[in-house]
Amino acid sequence: MVYVLLCVLAAPFHLSGVLGALSTVTWPLPAALGLTFLGTLLGALLTAWLLSRAHPPAQGYRAAWPGWFGRLAAQVQRRAVLTGVLARLALGSGAALEAFFVLTGYTRRQYLVTAVLGTALWTLQALLGVTLLRELAKASPGLAALFALLPPLTVAALLALRRARQRQDAA
C-alpha cells in the first residue's frame, strides 16, 4: 500500500516511471506491473479531478494556445481515445498531461477509457523495457548503453533535421 501511495503522489510530477523501474528490483515483474499500474492510474485520476475542479472551462483560452496545441486539440475531436492513449503512452502521467485532457474537453468516459488503456500500455512498456535493458546489460553492457541512448539520440537527430529544413526553407 505504501508503494501505491508513493505512485499516487509521484504521478503529478512525472515520477511514476522512476518508481516503476525501482519496483522491478523489489518485486517480481507481475507484482511490479500491477502495483505500478494501480498507483499511476489512481494518481492520474486524482490529478485530473483536482485540475478539473480548479480550472475554468478552456473555451476562452483557445485563441492563446500555440498552434501545435490547437492541432492536437483538433485531433481530440476526431480521435479522442487514440490521441489520449498515444499521449499517455508517450508521457505516462503528470500534471501537464492531465491538464491536456482537461483543456481539450475530454468527457469523463473518454478520459477513463484513455487513462485505463493508456496507463496499462505505458506501465507495460516502461517496466518491460527496464527489465529487458537490465537483462541485456548483464550480457552486453555496451549494447545496453547503446539501446538506452537510442531514444534521446533519435529525438536529437529529428530535431536537428527539423532545424536544417527550417533553415533551408528560410534561405
Rank of each mutant, 00 (worst) to 15 (best):
residue 1 M to E: 08
residue 2 V to A: 15
residue 5 L to E: 13
residue 7 C to F: 08
residue 10 A to D: 00
residue 11 A to K: 08
residue 11 A to N: 05
residue 11 A to I: 02
residue 15 L to N: 03
residue 17 G to P: 06
residue 17 G to F: 02
residue 18 V to P: 00
residue 19 L to G: 03
residue 22 L to Q: 05
residue 23 S to C: 05
residue 23 S to D: 04
residue 25 V to P: 07
residue 27 W to C: 06
residue 28 P to F: 00
residue 30 P to H: 03
residue 30 P to W: 09
residue 37 F to S: 03
residue 42 L to H: 04
residue 42 L to A: 08
residue 47 T to Y: 04
residue 48 A to P: 01
residue 48 A to Y: 06
residue 50 L to Y: 07
residue 51 L to S: 06
residue 53 R to T: 11
residue 58 A to Q: 04
residue 59 Q to S: 15
residue 65 W to M: 03
residue 67 G to L: 15
residue 70 G to N: 12
residue 73 A to Y: 02
residue 75 Q to I: 09
residue 80 A to Q: 02
residue 82 L to E: 10
residue 82 L to N: 10
residue 88 R to S: 13
residue 96 A to T: 15
residue 103 L to I: 08
residue 103 L to C: 07
residue 103 L to F: 10
residue 105 G to E: 02
residue 106 Y to P: 04
residue 106 Y to C: 00
residue 109 R to Y: 02
residue 111 Y to P: 00
residue 112 L to P: 03
residue 114 T to R: 09
residue 116 V to P: 00
residue 118 G to E: 08
residue 118 G to T: 10
residue 121 L to M: 10
residue 123 T to Y: 00
residue 124 L to P: 00
residue 129 G to P: 00
residue 131 T to I: 10
residue 131 T to Q: 12
residue 134 R to V: 15
residue 135 E to W: 13
residue 141 P to V: 06
residue 143 L to K: 01
residue 147 F to A: 14
residue 151 P to L: 09
residue 153 L to G: 05
residue 156 A to T: 11
residue 157 A to E: 14
residue 159 L to C: 05
residue 159 L to S: 05
residue 159 L to F: 12
residue 163 R to Y: 10
residue 164 A to F: 12
residue 164 A to S: 12
residue 165 R to E: 10
